[in-house]
Write a protein that binds this DNA or RNA. Structure first.
Lengths: 223, 223
DNA sequence: CGTGTGTTGAAAGCTTGCTGAAAGCTTGGA
DNA sequence: TCCAAGCTTTCAGCAAGCTTTCAACACACG
């Protein structure tokens, strides 16, 4: 599962992509305007950006430039219209990871997304910002201003799961499955213990784990 | 992106690899014969060579020997059939950087390619500084202020693996695979012994091997 | 050949600190 | 107010890791 941001002004195409990607289990945010996309990425971040070049508000290449300018290495998949060869090359030079020429097959897109997802899982890609912390997925390590924070295995697993789904409500069941593996008949009460321990540990690091009674947990960045 | 040369006579396999690697953005050249491969490498060079051992024309090991004989340090990933243990060892002695035992998962291959790519990006052949020591990855030798430190084979292998992934959490399994080769059913307990020996040896050289219980080990520079 | 030096990994006992059950407390909602 | 859901601390048990010892082996050298 990845958090994918699609920035594409053709709404039919955008909705089609979104639908397809949600189908295969990703969380998708949709923006139709370059400036909106830019600020969304700056605020929320993502695991993968699908970025059109021709956009109202702010050009896709500019969005990309800003992103990289912020030191953000999130993989970017460019969408270009046929003939925009020059833009595509510029895009790759600006640090895009891949591109697709419109029109393309949904299959083709999915293959690219998979390739980028795979890369993320093993290489880590960009560390994810949460509050004042950074989490490196590949290394499975947590940092604060470059200094490592160690956490025990189970706490790490819970945190990892919450980070993967930041911005979403995560049921205790999901957390338990992530920590112990699917199908393990584990008391969900144990998760509460780890939530408690994590809260204590995360204190003062600019993020809170909030409870939604009867539903699950979710992150909230503070300050 | 890397320029990858695949020398592999099984055309189905070779095409599969090529396709996969192009998918993730590399430029691939395909050769099916040892002599062809040899001269191609001599003429064109590459960023990475994926080399089968059993080849028509000229044996893969010979291709490798010639390559290194020309003073060429291009990373080489060997492909070996199950059971060719001796060849594999010879290959590593001849200066191969890694190997895969057939049949392997495409995922696995991609991970290795990425690892070698990363290595290329960070090293460039220069010795790596860790704490007060320098590690020459090509020569597989360790120095302190220009003076060589000799370590036994196994300890060196563990250290090498940790250096490759410095800053990352390295599971014992990964270390075991690196030291003994993939799939060897070796007790992970042995790794603990080598960690212990390495710690003693590295004492006072400005770096520590830290334990993350249940997760693995990682380096930490001190002072 | 024999001797010495060095490496290897199994075994065993020790240390550490993670884990999750239990129990009692707090909170939010009806 | 009451109850269910969630929170938090405590603690015994234990799994994971550490370290030393030792026998087997490998190799260099006389």
């Amino acid at each position: 599962m990845m958090r994918i941001v699609i920035i594409e002004d053709n709404k039919t195409l955008a909705r089609g992509l979104s639908h397809r990607l949600k189908d295969i289990g990703h969380a998708v945010d949709l923006l139709h305007d370059g400036s909106d996309g830019d600020s969304f990425l700056a605020d929320e971040g993502a695991d993968l950006v699908i970025l059109d070049i021709n956009l109202p508000g702010k050009d896709g290449l500019e969005v990309l430039k800003n992103l990289r300018g912020r030191g953000d290495n999130t993989p970017v998949l460019l969408l270009t219209a046929r003939g925009e060869t020059k833009d595509r090359v510029t895009g790759l030079d600006l640090g895009a990871d891949d591109y697709l020429v419109k029109p393309f097959e949904a299959e083709e897109l999915e293959a690219r997304v998979r390739a980028l997802a795979r890369r993320r899982n093993t290489d880590g890609g960009a560390p994810i910002k949460v509050g004042k912390l950074q989490f490196d997925r590949g290394a499975r390590r947590l940092f604060r201003d470059g200094a490592a924070m160690e956490l025990p295995r189970r706490e790490l697993a819970v945190l990892e799961c919450l980070i993967d789904r930041r911005g979403q409500l995560v049921p205790k069941r999901t957390l338990a499955d992530h920590v112990y593996g699917l199908g393990t008949e584990i008391e969900e009460k144990v998760i509460e213990i780890y939530i408690s321990r994590l809260r204590k540990r995360l204190e003062g690091h600019g993020l809170k784990i909030r409870t939604a009674r009867g539903l699950g947990y979710y992150f909230e960045e503070e300050e």
